[in-house]
Design a protein around this nucleic acid. Structure first.
Lengths: 336, 336
DNA sequence: AGCTAGACTGTAATCGATTACATTTAAAAT
DNA sequence: ATTTTAAATGTAATCGATTACAGTCTAGCT
């Protein structure tokens, strides 16, 4: 490995001069600068990043905790984070947690051991191990979409899930639907509560029921959508509209509804949440709520960046705008 | 920041003993071990990862270069890499290159500056900057799916794209198709040439044509599939079967074909490549070639891991098995 | 010519951990 | 009780860069 010492010898200067030539060239005469640069080139020298980092105490990396890498929605968020990070000279360590707390602990621990300077959590859990909780108090941490559990409040970039769900509900109520069902995602999260509350609030205002047996599901997957529809269609009353808590669920649901020989939206309207790319191209194209995933990622990094500089935030909660995207998976209710 | 010195003082021992207690406890008496562990706990001490890494010269990280984070197929590969890496104590630095060579250079450079120990390339380009090419000679690098360009041969984990394409072609020929078209992906890659060659070889054996005007596309996106179909349907002769070079293209193609009022597969059969998750749930479910993406990722890391240990490989090319997945997007040709 | 200010450059401390080598301690052997 | 041996611990060098501080040199001034 060529190190700074070799270069300094080659150029006939001290290591300090080499370092200065590379970090702050204006402090060095042009003559020596040339000598050094030539030696650098000749030796094929690259400063050892690890060494600079020990010295500075900063790793210029952040960890991103993802519950599920295969969810395309998260991917767009990560894309935004990555882009923003890259622009500021940070790199992104990917932590696929699979929702497993052991893994979360491990990845979160990276921030405590200087392997990373900050953390972005895409899930709702407090990622540090209980014994690390105290240390974690001063750690720059931000969450996206979900709010992190616990008394300590961390900044969050999110959507007004309540309002977005209300928008979806109004959309369906406007079409005259009265028999609703929902296939929900992970139950223990804030998002679940907010989205459900949003839907419930509209239905209550309209005096429409959402009985417990019409709430099925439990994970944000295509399979949950399929299984959800199976359960719903076993019920004596068939719903005419189904809220799916994300687009993956909706894709599974539509697929399964068709298998039963029913039509979307003529027999059952289906709406999703997230607006992943493929949602516009399935049959029928999905009515859903567009989340500005990429921007959410960017913003998350920017906020984290402020925390990492040791500054404090004026706002701890940032709410990005959603958009109701009306496509053909929802429509007026048909009397059977 | 609590460092090893503070802990050593707290425990009344030397820093060496603290280090040994944590790294090789068997070298330390139980009594001192207890003292040290208590001090560690009390101080909330975590070894500074950066410092250990400078010493060892290993960062225990790898960079993964992805041309396009939004492609779900890549995601599964990354998932496999991540899993395998995590098991061996490595972490994954994500490099979203967008196919931009400047970004590739930058990310690849991380390996030269000890920020990462190895590199996995999911694209086909040689990621290092020209001036770094010589240095890059000894860098542990592996590619997945695509082969890296240049004289120097790096290990690659791939599919027999030629054989897989032949399987798809045989499948369609077996249904009696005679008028073929293809919507291809990125043209400059090995994969493009192999897949096309595979298709061509079968068609030639059967004396069937694949005229140049029936080759459209140029990128692995849904949009390319849509645009491709538009171009193909402008031609005087309408194809009865379309090879799409990946599933995203196929999804776009099917969507657009339906827009023209044509049916899949009755009017046009469509086949894809990759078998991404959603392909099984679109309408009609897509006939495609399943690539063991997750395993490919795992395997890529394992191979890289061998290189990073400085050992040499017996085989430089590893070919994983594919599987033809016959679903409902392909079927017998209907005489019009 | 002599002196001073300011620009360059070099020396050596530093970051935080690891580890070769030296030293101390305790146990075992005589 | 003394010597031998092994185990435990400490001291200090080391990894590779950065940087405070000190030293040198040149240019400009009187």
């Amino acid at each position: 490995m060529t190190n700074i010492k070799k270069v300094s010898e080659l150029a006939g200067v001290s290591t300090a001069t080499v370092s200065r030539t590379l970090k702050s060239p204006e402090q060095v005469t042009e003559a020596t600068r040339d000598k050094v640069m030539q030696a650098v080139k000749q030796a094929g020298y690259r400063p050892n990043w690890l060494a600079s980092s020990v010295k500075s105490g900063k790793s210029n990396s952040i960890v991103v905790l993802v519950p599920n890498l295969t969810n395309p929605f998260f991917l767009r968020i990560i894309g935004g984070i990555e882009q923003a990070a890259q622009e500021k000279g940070y790199s992104v360590l990917l932590g696929d947690t699979q929702g497993d707390s052991k893994r979360e602990n491990e990845y979160a621990g990276m921030v405590l051991s200087n392997r990373a300077d900050g953390l972005i959590q895409l899930d709702h859990s407090f990622p540090f191990a209980p014994q690390d909780a105290e240390l974690a108090d001063n750690v720059p941490m931000v969450s996206v979409c979900e709010r992190i559990e616990g008394e300590r409040k961390y900044p969050v970039i999110e959507l007004d899930n309540y309002a977005a769900s209300r928008a979806l509900a109004h959309h369906l109520v406007g079409y005259g639907h009265q028999k609703f069902a929902a296939i929900v995602g992970q139950i223990s999260s804030q998002i679940y509560r907010e989205r459900l509350a949003g839907i419930r609030s509209v239905l209550q205002e309209e005096n429409l029921p959402l009985p417990d047996e019409m709430l099925v599901g439990g994970s944000y997957t295509i399979e949950a959508g399929i299984e959800g529809v199976r359960q719903l269609l076993k019920q004596p009353v068939r719903p005419t509209a189904i809220f799916c808590f994300n687009d993956d669920i909706a894709i599974g649901a539509i697929h399964e509804i068709k298998k039963y020989g029913l039509r979307v939206p003529q027999d059952i309207s289906v709406v999703g949440f997230d607006n992943i790319k493929v949602s516009a191209f399935i049959d029928p194209p999905l009515t859903t709520v567009d989340q500005p995933a990429y921007d959410m990622g960017r913003r998350a990094f920017e906020v984290l960046s402020v925390l990492m500089r040791g500054e404090s935030l004026t706002r701890i909660r940032e709410i990005l705008p959603f958009q109701l995207v009306e496509r053909q998976s929802s429509g007026p209710v048909h009397s059977s």
